[in-house]
């Protein structure tokens, strides 16, 4: 398979160039801010950055964190936007009839439940993650439409607080995001759980044969994804004061865009959380920045697509180089050693 070569080559890319990649992403981010700020100085004011640039991306940003875990295991969750809307709607209805506490509980339970459904279907019925979550993307929307009969659901005190509170000028959602980003970064890079996610993405068989409970691990990350979608739902509902079943339809693809831009391989086994986090802000700056520069919305879409393609080409080129370099290293380091130590 042609893909086989890809998967073999890519891990080294990230390992060897991981830091460089992330530095490159940061440079792109700074350059973007500088260019847009020069054209329209309002962009770089603190208020604008916080109120528009950051706040508009935070739900996507939150959902991209667990999605990175999923994509590293060679999975994907296309239902994230639907889980967010479904849990926001279910929670909003519960809050309207039973109070805020129930609203919060129902939101989280629905999110976790949706993740559990995804995980169980993927792991136990062994149905491809892309297909499964494409199906549940429609399924969760459908249920959301059914229980609301197509009507809007309104924000309640807790979500209004979540969506509109600033603490000393810093939006609450940003604080939550930073905390989550730190937790997810540590989870992926410093724990055995994170290690097993990479292993699953590279060679699921060998991971199972190492005694790692692959089924449970996979179900857990889909549940985490569902719960984070529910958390994003609080902010989303609060920010927009009401939601209908058919909003935020392309959010799942935006999340996938962030992941790919961040250098995580869709084939699994490669990537890190820092890349995702930087990519979130690049997308945020592009989204709001192009608007500030009065670039028409359709041209914005073209620019975003182009940025993504260019980044993919760069990853691919660096991947090839890493592969070549590796071959040289092997012949330099490995062979002489073997000759040295060959039994007489």
């Amino acid at each position: 398979m042609a893909d086989g070569m890809e998967t073999l080559a890519t891990p080294k890319v990230k390992k060897r160039f991981g830091v460089n990649f992330n530095i490159a992403l940061i440079l792109i981010l700074i350059a973007l801010i500088a260019v847009i700020g020069t054209v329209n100085p309002t962009f770089v004011t603190y208020n604008y950055l916080m109120a528009v640039v950051v706040k508009n991306i935070m739900e996507i940003g939150l959902m991209a964190l667990p999605m990175t875990l999923i994509v590293i295991t060679a999975g994907i969750d296309l239902s994230v936007g639907s889980i967010m809307i479904f849990s926001a709607i279910a929670g909003g209805m519960a809050a309207a009839s039973m109070g805020d506490g129930m609203g919060v509980i129902v939101t989280l339970l629905v999110g976790a439940g949706c993740g559990l459904v995804n995980g169980l279907v993927i792991v136990k019925l062994k149905i491809n993650a892309l297909i499964t979550t494409l199906a549940t993307f429609f399924l969760f929307r459908g249920i959301a439409k059914g229980i609301t009969h197509g009507d809007s659901v309104y924000s309640y005190d807790f979500t209004t607080f979540a969506g509109n509170t600033d603490i000393k000028g810093v939006p609450l959602v940003l604080i939550v995001f930073i905390a989550a980003a730190i937790i997810f970064t540590l989870l992926l890079s410093k724990t055995g759980f994170g290690r097993s996610l990479y292993a699953l993405g590279m060679n699921e068989n060998a991971t199972r044969y190492s005694g790692i409970n692959a089924d449970r691990t996979l179900i857990i990350i889909y549940i985490i994804s569902g719960v984070v979608c529910a958390i994003a739902a609080f902010f989303y509902l609060g920010r927009f004061t009401s939601v209908k079943f058919d909003v935020a339809n392309s959010m799942n693809l935006k999340v996938v865009t962030v992941i790919v831009l961040g250098g995580t391989s869709i084939l699994g086994g490669v990537g890190d959380m820092r890349g995702t986090i930087i990519a979130i802000f690049i997308i945020a700056v592009l989204n709001s920045g192009l608007t500030v520069m009065d670039i028409p919305i359709d041209v914005q879409t073209i620019i975003q697509g182009t940025v993504l393609i260019i980044s993919l080409i760069v990853y691919s080129i660096l991947g090839e180089r890493a592969k070549k370099r590796r071959v040289i290293e092997v012949s330099k380091e490995d062979e002489p050693r073997l000759v040295d130590k060959a039994p007489a």
Partner: peptide
């Protein structure tokens, strides 16, 4: 047997990640 894209160290410790952790961290 092995995740060959991982290091020798990572492969050897894979069946007992809990034993090479301190608290939750490796």
């Amino acid at each position: 047997g092995l995740v060959i894209e991982m290091s020798v160290k990572e492969n050897i410790t894979m069946p007992q990640l809990r034993n090479v952790s301190r608290g939750v961290f490796l």
